[in-house]
Lab assay of single mutants.
Amino acid sequence: VDYIVEYDYDAQHDDELTIRKGDIIKNVKKLEEEGWLEGELNGKRGMFPDNFVKEIK
């Protein structure tokens, strides 16, 4: 499942992704941690907030 970024987010920890509006995040999975998703961007896998992105259908 792929998501498109709607709002910029700067990573706060090493396991998070810095994302920018218009980025496409690939292979996204829901995490047990409420409010977070995990996906791949530019060869890096990491977490990001689910309210900054929208699923591409």
Rank of each mutant, 00 (worst) to 15 (best):
K29D: 11
N27A: 10
V53W: 04
W36V: 07
D14L: 13
L41N: 06
R20M: 09
D8S: 07
L31K: 08
R45N: 07
A11G: 09
E32P: 10
P49L: 14
I4Y: 09
H13Q: 12
K44I: 11
E33P: 08
D10K: 12
E32Q: 14
Y3D: 00
I25M: 05
L41K: 04
D8P: 13
P49R: 14
K54R: 12
D50S: 14
K44H: 11
F52I: 07
F52Y: 13
I4A: 07
G46W: 01
R45E: 05
V5M: 01
I4S: 10
P49K: 15
D8N: 10
I24A: 02
I19H: 01
I25S: 00
V53E: 03
E32R: 12
V28S: 09
R20P: 00
D2E: 13
L41H: 07
Y9N: 04
D14Y: 14
I56L: 11
K44Y: 11
D8E: 06
N42A: 10
K26G: 08
F52T: 07
K26D: 03
G22V: 01
R20K: 13
N51H: 04
M47V: 10
Y7D: 15
Y3N: 03
E40M: 08
I4T: 04
L17N: 00
T18V: 07
V5D: 00
K26E: 06
E55S: 03
F52L: 12
I19S: 02
N51Q: 12
W36K: 07
I19P: 00
G43R: 05
K54G: 05
F48A: 03
Q12P: 03
I56T: 03
G22Y: 09
K29G: 12
W36E: 01
H13E: 11
F48G: 00
N51W: 08
K44D: 09
R20S: 05
I19Q: 00
L37K: 05
A11S: 15
D14H: 14
E40V: 12
K26H: 13
D15I: 11
N27G: 10
R20G: 05
V5E: 00
N42H: 13
M47W: 07
E32V: 14
G46F: 02
N42K: 12
L17K: 01
D50I: 06
I24W: 05
H13G: 08
K26P: 01
Y7N: 12
E6S: 04
K21S: 07
K21A: 11
G22H: 06
M47N: 12
E40I: 10
E38Q: 06
Y3R: 03
E16F: 06
I25R: 00
A11F: 03
E40S: 12
D23W: 12
L17P: 00
E38H: 10
K57E: 15
V28R: 00
Y3M: 05
Y7T: 14
E33I: 14
E40A: 07
D50L: 14
L17M: 08
D23Q: 15
I4D: 03
D23H: 08
R20A: 09
N51S: 14
G22D: 07
E32A: 10
H13K: 14
D2G: 08
L17S: 01
G43I: 02
E32S: 13
D10L: 13
G43W: 05
H13T: 10
E38I: 14
K26N: 11
N27P: 01
G35N: 08
Q12I: 14
D50Q: 10
W36H: 04
K54A: 11
G35K: 06
K26T: 14
E32Y: 07
L37T: 04
E34Q: 13
R45K: 11
Y7H: 14
I4W: 13
K44P: 01
Q12Y: 07
R45Q: 09
G39F: 00
F48K: 00
H13I: 08
E33K: 14
G46Q: 01
F52M: 11
K21V: 14
D10T: 12
K57V: 15
D8T: 06
Y7K: 15
K54N: 11
F52R: 05
K44G: 06
I24K: 04
E33D: 13
I24M: 05
Y7P: 00
K44S: 13
M47Y: 07
F48Q: 00
E40T: 10
G39S: 00
G46V: 03
V5W: 02
E32K: 12
K44V: 06
W36D: 01
K54Y: 04
Y3Q: 02
V53N: 03
L31V: 14
N51Y: 06
N27D: 10
L37N: 03
K30Q: 09
P49I: 07
P49G: 08
R20V: 09
A11K: 09
E34I: 09
